[in-house]
Structures are given as C-alpha cells and as structure tokens.
Design a binder for these strands. Structure first.
Length: 846
RNA sequence: GCCCCCGUGGCGGAACUGGUAGACGCGCUCGACUCAAAAUCGAGUUCCCAAAAGGAGUGCCGGUUCGAUUCCGGCCGGGGGCACCA
C-alpha cells in the first residue's frame, strides 16, 4: 500500500468506476424510499468558483449520506444558461451567445466532474436548449390558457445602457442591477404572470415550511406584504370633469377622526387632470417624478405637497371638509395611490401637517391622562383607546377599526380590504438570449398563442450584436409569420422570458423528462417535493418565490399536485478571501503577494501590501481563488474537506492556505490510519478497557456524525471525525481498532469519497463505499457507564468526581461532601442547601 | 426609519431542553526524528500572578436563578432584508 494517498490517480480512478457503474443514476422504479437533494443550478459564466464548490460539496455530502442510509437519491445537475452575460460576451468578444454558453458548460461540467460529486449526469439539462425551453413555452401557454398570463401597457423600468426592461427587483437604488445606469420610466406592452392571485396562498404556505430558515420566510413575508385595512371613497366637494370621488386606503381606520388632509400621488388621475390646467401643479408633478429614489435621498427627502384648493368630505361628517393635496410621498402603485393624513399618529403625516400648518388632533391615547397631552415632534403609534372621536371614544384600536369598517360597509362608502405589496410578475425582456415568448401578434386577431405543434419556437442563430437593443427585433425573417388564427401576415413576439421563469420549474424537469411534454405528472410527483434545497441566500426572495408560485400555478391548472417545491431549504454562506492592496490603491490578487517576515509584500515591487478583511470573492477586488489549480495540487477530497470544516455552513467561509493545508494533512492522516491497519493485520480483541473505550468513542461518533450531517452541521461532523481519528491513533492495534478504522472510512466517505474508496479497497472491503451501508450506532455503547460529576460551591466549580452512571442523589451528595477540597472550602460547616442533578453535578449552597 | 440576525481565546468555531465554557481545527511555543530541512510524531497553548494556591472571564450595564454563553430589560458594536407601503 502506498505510503501517501495520491489524489491525482485515485480521483480519476474512482470517478471512472462510479461513472462506468452508473452508481449515482437515480432509478425511477426503485423500491427504496426516495430522497431528492438539489443545489441551485449554476449560471455557466465560464469557470467554477469556490462558491459552487462549497454549495455542491454540501449537497453531495447529504446525497451520499442518504444513499448510504438506504435511499434512492435524485441528485441532478444542470445549467441556468440564459441571461445577459452571454450577450455581453457576444458584444465584447464577437462570439455568439450560444457558442459562448455551451463552451462554458463544457468547461464547467469537466470541472465539476473532477470534484467527484455524486450526480446523476444522465438528467443534465440546460435551459438554453430548445428541448428545455420548448417545454417552458408550452407551460407558458398553459398558464395563458388558464388566464394566468396577461398583457398590459405598463410603465417599466428601462435600463438605457442594457436597453432592456428591469423587474422592480432588479432596480437597486434607482439603478439597473447590472449596468448601474440610472433607470428611466417608459411605457411598454408587457407580459405579466398573475402571481398576485396567489399572494394569500404564498403567504399562508410559508407557515408550513418549517424546514426553511426563519430569515427567508420572514423576507418572503415582508415581500408579499399583506396589509388589512379599509378602502373608502372621499367625496369631492365639487365634481371635477365628472369625477366626484376617489378611493383611499388606510390600515388605521380607527384614526379616521384624526384626519387633517387628503393626499394623492403625483401620478394620480386627479392630479394629472388638474395639472393640465394648472402649470404650477404640472411643475410640481414633474419635480416629483425627477426625485431620486436612492436610500440617502429618500431619507432626507422633504415631505412636499401641493394644495389643489379642492376639498373632500370627511366620510363620518359631510360638513367636515379636508383639504386635498398632491404629495410627493404618496405612491401611485401601492394601495389606491391616495391616503387620508392623520398627523397625530403617523410620522410622515405629522411632518407634512407641521410644514403646511394643518391641525394635529390626537385620537388615540395610551392612558386616560395622555388624552389631553398634545402631540410633540413624534406621532403616537402605540396602542391605546380612542379619544376625540365622537361615538368611537373609549374603544381600543382594534375595536375602533372593526367599528369604522362595519359602519363604512353599512353606509356603503367603503369596505374592509387587503392590499399587497407584491405586484404581478413582469416577464417580458427585450433580450435575445432567453426563451422566446410563444405568441404571435396579429393586427386582426391580437396576440395569438403559437400552436403547440409548432413548439419549440427556436431562437434564430443568425443574429448580430453590433448594435444595442434586441437583435430579434431586427431579424428579417424570424419575426414574419402567418397568424395561426386568421392566416394573415403577423409578427412574432420578440420579447423573451425573464430567466427566473427558466429556474422556476427546472427541478420538476429533473424529476421527469419525457420528450413530448414538460414532465410526466406521476413520475414528477414520485420525486417531488425536493427534500433538501441548498443555495445562496441571494435567492431568498425572487427565485424561491417564483418557483413557489410556478408550482402552485401548475397545481391550479391541474398539471402537478405539489403545493410547495422545496420542503427543506438551506442557504449557505459565501466563500471569502482577504483583499490585498498596493500603496497606490491597485487591488492585488493572492498570487501577486508573498510573505516577508510578519507582513505581506507585492512580489513584483517588494512594496508592503495593505491586507483587508475577508470579503466575497469578486473580480473587482481580485481576491478570487480559482478552484481548479487547488484541486490539481491537493485533490478533490482535501478541497471538499476544507469546504466543510470549521465554519458553520450558513456562515461565510474564509479561504486560506493554512486551511487547505490542514485539510490535506487530514486526508493523509486518514490514509495512514487505514494503511497501518493493513500492516497490523491485528484481529484479536484485547478485551480490556481500552477496546471498550474505543468502541464507545466509535459508536458515539457514529451517532454524532450522522446527526450532524442530517442537521447540515458539517463543521461539527468534521470535528467528530477528528475526535475519532485522535482516539484511534492513541489505541494499540487490535480488532477494535481495526473495526473503528473501517467504520471511520465509511463515516468520512460522504465528505472524502475518493479517499474512502481507495482505503476501503486497500483494506479489502467488499464492493464500493458508495454502495455501503452507513454504520449503525449500538445504543448499548453510546452511554458511558462512568460519568464525571461537577462539584460546585455556590455555583462555582470546585472539584470534580467520577461516579457510576445513574448513581442516586444521596450517594452523589455524600461523595461531594467527602471531597477534601470541598471540605476545606466549607470549613466543616454543613451546606444550607444541596442541589443534585443526577449524572451532572452537585451544587452546595453555603 | 422599520424588521431580522449576530458579538465566546491570536484566528475559524464547540457547548443537548439553564448544569464542568473554550470540543475540533488553524496558528504559535517547546521537544523527538534529521547533518539540516520538509514531512511526521509528542507535550503545551483563555487571561492575570514566576509557579502553586487563587482570581477574572462568553461586547457593556443590570435582573431572574442554587447555578446564565443560554432566559428577561437597557445600552454599545457588526451584518442582513425592506424602504416615503398609508
């Protein structure tokens, strides 16, 4: 047996064995219980990065562990292959997006294979393949037929650099998420998916997802943003161009008697109508539109209003008239675009009222004494009872809301309602490299679905990227089609689908991939939902919400009876690295610096380097580490082991040389243990305490490693394995030691699979470790029969003693009092009180 | 501004439902092997005191408890999400 483990040989050898045997091929017909383990599929950007390695290693450990525990495991891999980087590359490098993408896929597939992941490559898919997106087009048309897709003129976020529409989510601080360009507003006809139809379900469904991080559920809850309240109409004192009233929304109908003004958004139809005859108002509206939306600007933005001079009637008292303002802080796209202002109990309204000299009337008081207290600089938003509210006085806020809603409904001027922050999902993109929307526009018939038998609508290859905008728009022939309905000449839709659509159902296609339809329902339902989904927290809202929506939409149209796509969700942390900066501010990559004495210098210049805290690996900071050379040097197992060690998986992991060296040492250490065992050939039981102690340690670690992998606490499982290795190394050769080493190889197998196979084979183990059963922990060996008891005086540890497990309280107390140290501390006086926790401690209160 | 999470050795981090704080790894120190180095192995490593005895100690202040890293209140610091959401 070789003295050292040679990963270059072993990795390739075992990867080939697994592949030849189809070891990780998921059988649809298996009688074993099923387990679907999935990591978020990568965008084929060019090369694998450390984040991928970490993500897929975690999923792989779980997949392999499940296999060893008797599950038929589905662990697939594919490519989220549409998107803008391919078009950017096309423009910069004059290469077709498809060519670029497929070549990236080849590179990255090869890189992933070198890491030895237990993937079922037979199910590999790429979203840019017509055999995938054609089915997506069919699903889109299914949703279209079901009325879940619609088209509307809408103001969109237009990125003037990328020349495309952005979803609200892709606008960050008023700038495009990719280009960073200031986003403009434009009106375009767009396709929308009715995700708001599912708002309630999507919100309610969150409570079932108890294997999701609370954080993610909370983020989705906030994103969906359900608010209960009252929608009611304000009557205008004098009708305006036939409009005699408008609707407002409030979550605080109880404060209606504190109303001081009404306000509408600058985009509100009334404001626009008035502005036509009022240049001052028109100027105000224009100014509001211009206003920046960055965090800093909003923070400092003044609450500004324009008094229209119009008055509205208070709903509870027609004689009570309120001024109507156009206000810059009222948003057209939330609620009804109009509000009533209650300065006493809303901070924004208060600032507005102070500025324009409007009355501030308290209508909620936390205590009877507070009722007379005027409102200062801060609105009162706490609980209390209503005051200054006529017949509502004395009611709690909750009662007040119910009373006002009941009265509004009775008198027919308003109704209790729910509004959502969630908007419908705009899926049109003015891009080439995406799934063509399978619609044909006919002047006579309007938008007509492409007939199913003509799917897929395949992207034309003959396009150029020398001008900005969507090349499909300019395509001479592709756009020209006959209307499927009337046969007249028509134009193909040139928008493509948001790539989030592609990733909203790929996990279903993995589970079932017939040629002639998106998936087979029964087959898909056998695998779904995904048992454990693992990916970055950056997808906590969009991707996960869209996939949940898509799954529910398919359910509603009777295609798949699954409520939630992902039963368990785990969001892993990033892989980070220190940053290095030259004195002149240049970012330096890790291979451009070297240590000198206690510091780092730039190799080329010898200048000292400024070392920054570990940050997400990024091109701009040049602190990325390419996994491939690391795998070349240390092998897949050391890299995998390092990815799992030390840092809890949900937290960031700082990459460093010492860490990978440590992992390499462990790999060699485990190899040595196995090699030595072969050399010993020891098969006799020593029969002493030593054997038994090792056995106990082994079985405790069998239980602990399993529990920790199951909890995805890989860093703890790693620590367990180190502990076991330490114990084995201290033990003399024996049958117990041999048994422990064999078991350890199996326990480590999900993490370091190549090494495990090699060691297993060298020790004469039968079959593949990948097919072996996970060791079983013997309950009889889990518990120690001797326990260490802490002896405290007044809660301070003063001594420890060893006692048989399960010793009675009286015995422990006796033993504690018999301790010499304790006697000294108590100075012979009996304790006032004794607390005994069996098998744990004795606390003597002096 | 609102909501959420996190603060433990030189570092990454352990500590089950309140019960011996610092498992495990990294780094460092000393030692063994070696002509030497690498690799490997052994010992040590929270802080204070020369050491023992002892004392302090889980961001800070306070509380509950026989006992608090763990529970409660208030600060300070770091991170994340949302954001003029009525």
């Amino acid at each position: 047996m070789a003295a050292r483990f040679n990963p270059l040989e072993a990795d390739a050898h075992w990867q080939k064995v697994w592949e030849d045997r189809g070891t990780f091929h998921a059988s649809d017909s298996s009688a074993r219980p099923r387990s679907y383990v999935l990591e978020m599929f990568p965008y084929p950007s060019g090369r694998i990065h450390m984040g991928h390695v970490r993500n897929y290693t975690m999923g792989d450990v779980l997949a392999r562990y499940r296999r060893m525990n008797g599950f038929e495991v589905l662990h697939p891999m594919g490519w989220d292959a549409f998107g803008m980087p391919a078009e950017n590359a096309a423009m910069e490098k004059k290469v077709h997006p498809g060519v670029w993408t497929w070549s990236n896929i080849d590179t990255m597939r090869a890189q992933l294979k070198r890491l030895g992941f237990a993937l079922d490559w037979s199910r590999e898919l790429a979203t840019c393949d017509p055999s995938y997106y054609g089915h997506e087009q069919a699903l889109f048309l299914d949703l279209f037929d079901a009325g879940l897709v619609y088209r509307k003129q809408s103001e969109v976020n237009w990125d003037p650099v990328d020349m495309t529409v952005l979803a609200n989510e892709q606008v960050i601080d008023g700038r495009g998420w990719r280009s960073g360009a200031l986003v403009e507003r434009r009106k375009l006809s767009q396709w929308f998916l009715k995700i708001t139809d599912f708002a309630d379900e999507l919100l309610e469904g969150l409570s079932e997802l108890d294997q999701w991080p609370d954080k993610v559920r909370l983020m989705q809850e906030n994103w969906i943003g359900k608010s209960r309240g009252l929608k009611f109409r304000f009557g205008l004192e004098a009708p305006l161009e036939g409009i005699d009233s408008f609707e407002v929304f409030t979550t605080r109908p109880d404060t209606i008697c504190g109303a001081a003004f009404a306000a509408i958004a600058p985009d509100h139809s009334i404001a626009l109508a008035l502005a036509e005859h009022d240049p001052d108002l028109a100027a105000f509206v224009a100014e509001c539109r211009k206003g920046g939306t960055t965090a800093a600007e909003l923070e400092t933005a003044e609450k500004k209003g324009f008094d229209t001079g119009l008055k509205v009637h208070h709903p509870l008292d027609a004689a009570w008239k309120l001024p109507l303002y156009v206000a810059n802080f009222v948003l057209m796209d939330y609620g009804t675009g109009a509000i009533f202002g209650c300065p006493a109990h809303d901070q924004r309204d208060l600032e507005f009222a102070r500025k324009y000299g409007l009355p501030v009337t308290r209508v909620v008081a936390g205590s009877p004494e507070e009722a007379a207290e005027p409102i200062g600089d801060e609105a009162y938003t706490g609980p209390g009872r209503l005051v200054n509210s006529g017949e509502l006085d004395g009611l709690t806020g909750e009662e007040g809301m119910r009373a006002v809603i009941a009265r509004a409904e009775e008198e027919d001027w308003g109704e209790g309602t729910t509004v959502w922050r969630l908007r419908d999902w705009g899926v049109s993109r003015q891009r080439y490299w995406g799934t063509p929307i399978p619609i044909i526009h006919c002047e006579a018939c309007g938008p007509v679905p492409v007939p199913r038998e003509e799917l897929p609508v395949v992207l034309p290859d003959d396009v150029g990227f020398d001008q900005p905008g969507n090349p499909l728009d300019r395509h001479p022939t592709w756009t020209k089609v006959d209307c499927p309905s009337c046969g007249g000449s028509a134009r193909r839709e040139t928008d493509t689908l948001d790539t989030f659509v592609d990733s909203s159902w790929y996990f279903i296609r993995f589970a079932s991939q017939p040629k002639d339809r998106p998936f087979d329902r029964a087959e898909a339902e056998r695998w779904l939902p995904v048992g454990q989904y693992i990916g970055g927290v950056e997808h906590a809202i969009l991707h996960l919400l869209y996939a949940r929506f898509w799954t529910r939409a398919l359910r509603r149209i009777g295609r798949l009876d699954i409520e939630e796509p992902f039963m368990g969700l785990f969001t892993q942390g990033m892989v980070t690295h220190e940053t290095y900066r030259a004195p002149d501010g240049r970012w330096l990559s890790p291979d451009e610096v070297e240590p000198l004495d206690d510091r780092l210098i730039e190799s080329a210049t010898g200048e000292p380097v400024d070392v920054g805290r570990p940050q997400a690996m990024s091109k701009s900071k040049r602190n990325g580490i390419d996994p491939e050379p690391i795998v070349d040097q240390y092998g897949a197992d050391a890299v995998r082991w390092f990815m799992l060690s030390d840092s809890p998986p949900e937290r960031d992991l700082a990459w460093n040389e010492d860490g990978i060296e440590g992992a390499w040492r462990f790999v060699q250490r485990l190899w040595r243990l196995a090699s030595e065992e072969e050399g010993h050939g020891a098969s006799t039981w020593l029969g002493g305490d030593e054997d038994e102690a090792l056995q106990r340690k082994l079985h405790q670690m069998i239980a602990a490693v399993g529990a920790n992998i199951e909890a995805l606490a890989f860093n703890k499982a790693v620590a367990n394995l180190y502990e076991l290795a330490n114990a084995i190394e201290k033990a003399a050769p024996s049958a117990a030691r041999r048994e422990a080493v064999e078991a350890m190889v199996l326990l480590a197998a999900p993490m370091v699979p190549h090494l495990a196979e090699q060691a297993w084979a060298a020790m004469g183990g039968a079959g593949l470790v990948a097919d072996a059963a996970w060791p079983e922990a013997d309950p009889a060996l889990l518990a120690e029969d001797q326990v260490t008891i802490a002896v405290q005086v007044n809660g301070k540890l003063r001594d420890t003693l060893t006692a048989p497990k399960g010793a009675p309280k009286e015995r422990l107390e006796e033993m504690a009092l018999a301790s010499e140290k304790i006697g000294r501390i108590l100075e012979g006086k009996p304790p006032r009180k004794v607390i005994v926790v069996p098998d744990r401690l004795v606390n003597l209160v002096a």
